[in-house]
Write a protein that binds this DNA or RNA. Structure first.
Lengths: 112, 112
DNA sequence: ACAATACGCAACTTTTTAGTTGCGTATTGT
DNA sequence: ACAATACGCAACTAAAAAGTTGCGTATTGT
């Protein structure tokens, strides 16, 4: 963890978290978490926001890699891309692991 | 998942992700991930930003519950609060789990 | 006592984000 | 053929976020 690109790697998941850091987008993720792909129109009802607003949110999720879109005729369907969620999980895991390790070392020190 | 408060619960982690969705703040988390508490001044060197900027970022992390501060004399020291990271992990886990379950059901259907 | 350190508060600017409205185009159903 | 549906693009507004500067105060070290 002392080479120059280690910091970059640590910072890489920031756009993913930023994309998840909005209630509207979390709601969209929630609706897509069953693995089904849905059109923008379908994702736009059940909300007070306009279709354009939802479209923007979906593009944010797509840019972050959390979601993937496929055009099917006149509609474009969005589906979850679980690999990116795994990336975010891996980051959180690494933070927790470092913390646990530090705690273990501290306890070992105290008990000595 | 059909009661009114289920949606709220699903949306609850949004502020946590929002707080993590910034490279400066992720860097701060990285520096605190060894479990040690550090003063604002200490966290402010090694960056081109001003102390005030770092202070703001730390307050954002604190409001999200990712970090906790304790005043010690003239300095206030910040340390990671791992429980909140666990909350974020739990959310990502639940999304992944739902996706996996859906996939399993789909496969079961195809194989029938 | 006094200089240096470590903060907090407030005002301000700049940039980004969220959301809207309007309009044009491709696709589908009848 | 034509109406309805599903989008995309662009311009715009409003609000939030990131960052700075200036200044005042408490705490520490000598």
């Amino acid at each position: 963890m002392s080479n120059p690109s280690a910091l970059e790697a640590t910072l890489a998941p920031a756009p993913i978290f930023a994309a998840l850091g909005d209630p509207t987008r979390l709601a969209l993720v929630g609706r897509l978490s069953d693995g089904q792909a849905r059109s923008i129109a379908r994702l736009s009802d059940d909300t007070h926001l306009t279709r354009q607003a939802i479209t923007k949110h979906l593009r944010v999720l797509e840019t972050a890699g959390l979601v993937r879109s496929v055009r099917a005729g006149r509609e474009s369907r969005f589906a979850l891309q679980p690999e990116t969620f795994a990336t975010a999980r891996a980051y959180l895991d690494s933070v927790s692991r470092q913390w646990d390790d530090a705690l273990a070392r501290l306890q070992a020190f105290v008990e000595t």
